[in-house]
């Protein structure tokens, strides 16, 4: 629902035209950063710790053990409602596909994470604000089914403005579809870890993303149900400092850990090794 960010000017993480190509600027503190180092630091500003957005492919590279990822996502979106606003949905889809090289807002596949066999699904914010329509819902359900069938752990990295408006009620139904599919993991005692990144709102937070065994959030990530603009309009007041940020959610008991991206893989592996019944007792490995 909160697709409000979708129409803002797009700015790939860390890019800035005012400085020479090799350099970029932190979006939060404005520090000059050497691009190569910035990338190696996983787009975390070494000066202020601000976590910049990163692409789905970079997420996979960061979390999957090297050389183990095999993509399984393959579905393409349709335009079931023939939706037209100021532009036809079909045209918007084409533009996103061209821009991201992806069919829809999710990249997923099988891999090992710290040696633990996993299904890793990563939402791509660059594609229609990471919104969940029929393709995202179906890919998640299939990912869960694959995890259950192959005794893999499930890891989902959420980055989404919510359900996709242009598929209306069908998008809404993906919330029920994805949530119900998780029962397959419950039945087989397979772990599900959710990683909430900036931003995760609307129908994605209010469905599969909130129902993991362990929930990580990245520092400073905006996470919630309603978007801040909607809330501001409703209550006609300024929102409290830090409202709906990862640290706020930790304080209110909604997430297990707020973890710096540079430690995220390590903590994820620990969680998966604790939870996956197929991994032998091995503290501190």
């Amino acid at each position: 629902m909160a697709l409000e960010r979708l129409f803002r000017r797009k700015r790939p993480s860390g890019e800035n035209r005012d400085v020479p190509e090799l350099w970029t600027k932190c979006e939060a503190c404005g520090a000059q950063l050497y691009k190569k180092e910035f990338r190696e630091n996983l787009y975390v500003c070494p000066k202020c710790g601000h976590h910049h957005r990163m692409s789905a492919a970079e997420r996979v590279a960061m979390l999957a053990d090297e050389g183990t990822f095999q993509e399984t996502t393959r579905l393409a979106p349709l335009d079931p409602l023939g939706f037209v606003d100021t532009k036809p949905y079909a045209e918007r889809l084409q533009a996103y596909q061209k821009e991201t090289g992806r069919k829809d807002a999710i990249l997923g596949g099988t891999c090992a994470i710290g040696g633990v066999p996993s299904v890793l699904l990563v939402m791509d914010y660059a594609f229609a604000g990471g919104s969940m329509g029929s393709v995202v819902g179906e890919e998640i359900a299939r990912g869960v089914e694959r995890a259950a069938a192959e005794e893999r752990a499930l890891v989902i990295v959420a980055a989404s403005g919510g359900a996709r408006m242009q598929e209306a009620a069908l998008s809404l139904m993906q919330m029920a579809k994805t949530v119900m599919s998780l029962d397959l993991l419950w039945a087989k005692r397979l772990p599900y870890v959710s990683i909430l990144t900036d931003p995760t709102t609307g129908g994605v937070t209010a469905s599969f993303a909130a129902l993991a065994d362990v929930i990580f959030a990245e520092p400073g990530a905006l996470i919630g149900f309603a978007g801040p603009r909607v809330i501001r309009q409703t209550i006609r007041q300024e929102l409290p400092e830090g409202f709906q940020r990862a640290e706020f959610l930790l304080k209110h008991g909604m997430v297990d850990r707020v973890t710096d991206r540079r430690q995220l893989k390590g903590e994820l592996v620990r969680a998966l090794r604790h939870l996956h019944p197929g991994v032998p007792y091995a503290p501190g490995v």
Binding site: V179, M180, A206, A209, G224, F225, T234, M254
Partner: peptide
């Protein structure tokens, strides 16, 4: 969509209710 609802985990209970009913 309000501050108190967010503080008390609106997204979480909606997800849980979907799951419970399912």
């Amino acid at each position: 969509p309000g501050v108190s609802a967010e503080e008390r985990g609106q997204a979480w209970v909606i997800a849980q209710s979907i799951q419970r009913m399912g």
